[in-house]
């Protein structure tokens, strides 16, 4: 097994009085997909934002290649080859494809202090990146993000991360807005990244997607690491249970099916 690219040791994170992450220790290795699972509000996004340099851990240590690192800002993480697609982000509706692709990493041309945003280069790179991603409808880097579909935006965000994520690729629910075809494309991209030796952290609520690409699984329940296991160690049902916060979803599944059968295919109303 290869060495950990990125490691968390006893990381805690709280926002004022609210403790969100408790004592998380986790490793991601090169060429491995770590699936981060957990219910809504479990702290998955907070965890990856800590890795991406958006939040600083309240306590605990972060290591890259075995050496302690601290990220003062997202740029520090980006400079070390960590690229993140955030859950609801990366969309500036009134910016062009080329400009938004390079937000925070603008390519420039020119001399001395008179640097000029290199629009042609930005557009060309951005369009090539999304096209390689299979979104061939985007041919003009001047197009505004607001005119793209949800899936196209998500694809653009992932293409961007792939472009900059030399070592670690973090995807927070990348398949949430996507159709079946795009979702499977994302999964293929994840596998491709793994083959290239990139460490991938993949967050999803869909067991199928998790099982399709995950090498390693970590389950968060209310901010604590509840379970960690490798591919093949747990069955689909067990994983589903864990993702729902340890509740017996398997039984629930049967209940739901029974309910739907007797209610013209409608799912039962949510219970709290």
């Amino acid at each position: 097994m290869s060495k950990a690219v990125l490691e968390l040791r006893n990381v805690n994170k709280s926002f004022g009085p609210i403790d969100v992450l408790h004592d998380i220790s986790l490793k991601v290795r090169a060429g491995e997909v770590l699936c981060l699972l957990g219910d809504n509000g479990a702290g998955k996004s907070t965890l990856i934002k800590t890795l991406a340099g958006v939040h600083k851990p309240t306590s605990g240590q972060m290591l890259m290649d075995g050496e302690p690192v601290t990220f003062e800002r997202p740029r520090d993480a980006a400079d070390r080859g960590i690229a993140t697609v955030h859950q609801f982000g990366g969309t500036f509706p009134l910016m062009s494809v080329g400009r938004s692709f390079f937000v925070g990493m603008e390519p420039t041309k020119g001399i001395g202090p008179f640097k000029v945003f290199d629009r042609d280069k930005a557009n060309a790179v951005a369009v090539r990146a999304v096209q390689e991603f299979g979104i061939t409808r985007i041919t003009d880097g001047d197009r505004l993000i607001g005119g793209l579909s949800g899936g196209e935006r998500q694809s653009l965000a992932i293409a961007r991360a792939l472009h900059f994520g030399a070592r670690v690729l973090i995807l927070d629910e990348p398949t949430a807005a996507l159709g079946v075809k795009q979702a499977s494309h994302v999964l293929r991209v994840v596998m491709e990244a793994r083959k290239r030796g990139i460490a991938v952290i993949f967050i999803t609520h869909q067991v199928t997607h998790a099982m399709a690409v995950g090498d390693h699984f970590a389950v968060l329940i209310r901010g604590a690491l509840a379970a960690e296991f490798a591919r093949g160690e747990k069955s689909r049902e067990e994983i589903t249970d864990l993702m729902a916060g340890g509740e017996a979803l398997a039984n629930l599944g049967a209940d739901v099916e029974a309910y739907m059968a007797s209610h013209a295919g409608h799912p039962p109303p949510p219970q709290h």
Partner: peptide, 17 residues
């Protein structure tokens, strides 16, 4: 680009560094 990004989506702009 930063100014447009800031006005477009503050959170994403922060996340982008």
């Amino acid at each position: 680009n930063w100014i447009f990004a800031l006005g477009g989506d503050k959170e994403s702009a922060r996340n982008a560094g």
